[in-house]
Write a protein that binds this DNA or RNA. Structure first.
Lengths: 218, 218
DNA sequence: TCATTTTTTTAGTCTAGGCTAATTATTATT
DNA sequence: AATAATAATTAGCCTAGACTAAAAAAATGA
């Protein structure tokens, strides 16, 4: 697999995550920031390698083999993120781009050793679970904050949008990975919510922000 | 600079090291394991970027700017080698290929942090000096073992041929980076030499082997 | 249902880096 | 100095991965 193929496969994997049946060419183009024409070409290639099932005009399904390979790339990405934050003192909002490059280094031994060196971490700095070397993820299910009901409780374990802007905003308002939260109020009109952070701090946020925060229920 | 360009420039830098005036297309093709035709093309491109001075049919000279850039790549390569050996417990003869990939990661911050994390090492696991962030190398001059005279003394600080086979051979006969040596005898006929290792072990080696061992005189 | 809109694919072009075969420069040898 | 040998360059082709424009299929909606 080339770097480009790995990136496409990873994108298709992520787009399939929400339980969506099939992923469209346009979706992939959007995620990859390429044009649909380029995507068609790549889908044909990935189809031939049997990491996806490709039926012209009907989008793609990722195969079990494809899933396994995508999870390997994701594993590498997240391990490197842990390395950057834990060992090289990067901020959690500075690691994505570099990890995007590092994840394509081809050396199973390297990843094995890195995993050991980092002490077999289970989550990356954004709270996302790190698949094991067989592609297994045994993380408990997570909820999207804006889909929770009043009085439900949990812990912030991840963010979907790990852009620098979003991460900085969270930091500013006092939300962070690990924070324990409780839904205090929810406005049907605009979907905005009010939460209690660590049993002491009230925090109001828009639906858009809440939709990017993942919660582990306790 | 693309990865390919970086690799060519690094090769040209190394080929220029022996004080050779100009480097031939064939030399570069040999080092890069590509065909001369491909090299001609790349030399034209590198010439346009002014990292080399290229006169058709007369080989190339690396420019000051080119030297600076090559040294940055070399710096990155060697820092990663230190990381692999010191932190991830790679053997010194296992690191080259992986470092060859890692050296192309583009992130000045990453290298800065890595350098600090490794405690600003001055030599890589093969004993080669690590240039600083300005491309300066302040390592003392080294001699090639087969060019030393009887009774001269010094310390093994590096090997030129860092192939796994050569490194394993050295290990087997009891030579290693850091060993203190003294030239006991030299045969004009075939250039083979006999050395004393650490004041206790006599070691006989061919000119070919000795030509790959670099000595720091004490 | 049939026409229009949207989505997707195909066809053809481009750049980076390779290659081989043919050509041209330079160097070596008589 | 002329010719032979070697080295380097050019020309033309290939693949990967992007693009645009055109064509075709699918979805929508009047």
């Amino acid at each position: 697999m080339t770097t480009a193929e790995e990136n496409y496969l990873k994108a298709i994997y992520h787009l399939s995550e929400g339980g969506k049946k099939s992923v469209s060419t346009n979706d992939v183009a959007g995620a990859m920031k390429t044009k649909p024409a380029s995507v068609s070409d790549m889908l044909r290639k990935l189809g031939e390698k049997e990491v996806i099932e490709y039926r012209k005009y009907y989008g793609v399904h990722i195969t079990d083999e494809g899933k396994k390979q995508a999870l390997q790339t994701i594993r590498k990405h997240r391990l490197w993120e842990v390395f950057l934050v834990d060992k090289l003192n990067f901020a959690w909002d500075e690691v994505h781009e570099v990890a995007e490059e590092l994840e394509h280094i081809q050396s199973p031994l390297l990843i094995q050793r890195l995993d050991a060196f980092l002490n077999y971490p289970k989550f990356d700095p954004h709270g996302d679970p790190i698949p094991d070397e067989f592609g297994d993820v045994k993380a408990k299910p997570r909820l999207v904050l804006n889909e929770m009901e009043i009085d439900q409780m949990g812990q912030i374990v991840a963010v979907k949008d790990s852009s620098a802007a979003f991460l900085k905003y969270l930091d500013k308002v006092g939300a962070y990975i690990g924070a324990r939260i409780k839904i205090l109020d929810k406005t049907d009109f605009d979907g905005s919510i009010e939460i209690l952070v660590d049993q002491k701090k009230n925090l109001f946020m828009s639906k858009e922000v809440a939709a990017n925060i993942l919660i582990q229920q306790s």
